[in-house]
Amino acid sequence: MNFNWMAWTGPTAAFFLIILGMLITMTVWEIRVPGGAPRRGILGFETTRGDRLFVSLLGSAFIHIFWLAFFSLNLWWAFALACVYAVCVFIWV
């Protein structure tokens, strides 16, 4: 078995490790404090921690794409924006 074709790079490996880390953190958190802290946020339906994480990640991906589409500035700005967005999601959604 040869997995060279997957063409791993440092940054993508780090990216997936961070995602994996997030999933592990969420699992541990869920086991420590079960129930997922459900609440009704500004979107008008019940969300749990996991939902908020998903909304943050998906939204961040779209923020990056739109940044590429409309601005020529460095992508780290989009990253910063995505972080702010994620914090907002965890507070209000």
Binding site: N4, M6, A7, T9, T12, F15
Partner: peptide, 19 residues
């Protein structure tokens, strides 16, 4: 994961990729 890896690299074949 493979798709993500490919999306940030270019290749001329033979499994040689560059960022």
């Amino acid at each position: 994961m493979t798709v993500v890896n490919y999306s940030v690299q270019d290749t001329f074949g033979n499994n040689v990729f560059f960022w």
